[in-house]
């Protein structure tokens, strides 16, 4: 028996503690499942926390209708294999209004289909706690985020009105309508996530692995020709390139990177040797300085 736990086992235990605490203290928690690598780790930790029982809360996916096809396939396969309750929610108003990332720009589209969609879903099911897979190392404004992030009745995040968190004691008290977003992966870094996926052999969406795929170069990003809804502008052409994705989201907003990394060790190797952060491939963060902070105040995860 090792005397000192390794850093991954310490992170794992901390996350399990948080997940159990949320399940014990909230009336109606939900785990937001975004299908990405962080969600895959969070799901594994939830399974561990309640083994041999199933996690005592449903998973929920906010489907913007623009996710990569392979993500949806992977989501449905995971739900089948683990037998968890999966709720899928789409902002139908946004669909009816014809809001798409191509026609309305990333900012408005994200606001309507992701942020609004999430708020609607939380209101509909009256969840008082929602697990998210966000990490503090992702982005500067996340560094000060609490593990239990308090949200008002209108789902707003007020950076000046967050509760201090000491030791491993979390304050779960909310009034009707208020809620907590809870981040069990707060203290994990991107490298920790990959090492854990490797160590635990956790399945992830195949898009993370390199493969020759049809892409088009647009605004300096490589966009996958995932379905027929992406139309080529004059001068654009489809190229077959060996690419993979460092993060997954809506395919028109998520840039691929050229890579030959086709196995987990190769992915980790590439990440360790690379010089750009994972969020760089996300259009959403580039709109303006401090943009993530603004989105969070409005209720984005």
């Amino acid at each position: 028996m090792r005397i000192n736990m390794t850093h991954l086992r310490q992170l794992e235990a901390e996350s399990i503690h948080i997940i159990r605490e949320v399940a014990a203290e909230f009336e109606n928690p939900v785990m937001l499942y975004s299908i990405g690598k962080d969600s895959s780790v969070m799901l594994r930790l939830a399974l561990k926390a309640f083994y041999p029982a199933k996690p005592p809360f449903p998973l929920m996916h906010i489907d913007t209708t623009w996710k990569f096809k392979e993500m949806i396939e992977f989501r449905d396969r995971m739900a089948r294999e683990h037998g968890f309750d999966l709720l899928i929610y789409t902002n139908q108003d946004g669909v009816d209004q014809g809001i798409t990332p191509f026609t309305h720009g990333s900012a408005l589209y994200t606001d309507v289909m992701k942020t609004e969609g999430l708020k609607q879903a939380l209101n509909k099911y009256r969840f008082d706690a929602a697990f998210g897979g966000a990490r503090r190392d992702e982005e500067k404004s996340r560094a000060k985020e609490r593990i239990y992030s308090f949200r008002s009745e209108t789902h707003r995040w007020d950076p000046k009105n967050q509760r201090p968190e000491l030791w491993n004691i979390y304050n779960a008290r909310v009034k009707p309508g208020e809620s907590i977003r809870t981040f069990p992966l707060s203290n994990w870094t991107e490298l920790d996530i990959w090492q854990y996926i490797y160590l635990e052999n956790i399945p992830i969406v195949p898009l993370y692995y390199s493969k020759v795929r049809p892409v088009v170069e647009r605004d300096g990003m490589l966009i996958l020709m995932d379905d027929g809804r992406i139309k080529l502008a004059p001068g654009e052409e489809v190229q077959m390139k060996s690419v993979r994705f460092r993060t997954l989201g809506c395919y028109p907003l998520t840039g691929a990177v050229e890579s030959d990394a086709a196995t987990l060790p190769e992915i980790i190797q590439e990440m360790l040797l690379t010089r750009t952060s994972e969020r760089q491939g996300r259009l959403i963060d580039h709109d303006q300085a401090g943009s993530m902070e603004k989105k969070k105040q409005e209720g984005y995860f």
Partner: peptide
């Protein structure tokens, strides 16, 4: 993020093995 170990480029599996023993 360019960790300095030569192992990363040379033998990523050995590097990962070593990383599993890291403390915090």
């Amino acid at each position: 993020m360019a960790h300095q170990s030569d192992l990363i480029a040379e033998d990523i599996t050995a590097y990962l093995k070593a990383q599993e023993e890291k403390s915090m």
